[in-house]
Design a protein around this nucleic acid. Structure first.
Lengths: 101, 101
DNA sequence: TGAACAGTTCAATATATTTTGAACAATTTA
DNA sequence: TAAATTGTTCAAAATATATTGAACTGTTCA
């Protein structure tokens, strides 16, 4: 049975879901994701930015959104920030979206 | 091997992919989709609109975007327009996104 | 026929997202 | 230490998306 507190939780889940789809609905971020998937190992933001030809400011903005959506894991090492895909999030919010919504 | 013509095709696929994610990244449209999934049979736009409490203008706008993304099938019968989910699109662009991108 | 109904279109407005460049902090290298 | 490197933040501008109400088309019903 669904009470009003559970309803809040449901809204939070919907919000997370929406953040994920929003993050995936931009051509720059799709390029980032495809690049990371193809490489299949940790890379710096700078390397990704050079590979797909975007400015560092734009990169910073897009990596932030991907991170907020939980689609990438990030690790800072001194000057550089390293990123990888977070497959769990893809699984939960994309691959399993239809069957579990 | 990927030549420049294939590249155009790839861009088209990306565009379709983006239309799908964009369509899914809005709370109203997510409500529509959940309602249709739950019902699991054809309903009119008006019935959906009443169920989730949106104006007919807003409904018309959102159903159009869902249709453009290929996420719903529509059928007009006289005054009314009936909609169902298009599971194939969910399969191809959502469920299989990660593995096949 | 004329009123009600289902949905669309349009233009105006509001809101959200993306891009850009300048200034910044922290770290590394010469 | 000074210069170069990596990335962030901020504000302005450009662009895209969503909401609203009025007017409209086509259909049904009394």
């Amino acid at each position: 049975m669904m009470n009003m507190l559970d309803n809040k939780k449901q809204n939070q889940i919907d919000n997370d879901q929406i953040l994920v789809f929003k993050a995936l609905s931009d051509p720059v971020r799709l390029k980032i994701i495809k690049y990371l998937k193809q490489l299949n190992h940790e890379v710096s933001c700078g390397e990704v930015g050079k590979a797909i030809n975007i400015s560092k400011t734009s990169g910073s903005y897009h990596f932030k959104l991907l991170e907020l959506a939980g689609l990438i894991n990030t690790r800072r090492e001194a000057r550089e920030k390293y990123v990888t895909l977070n497959e769990q999030t893809f699984d939960k919010y994309v691959t399993n979206f239809y069957k579990s919504m």
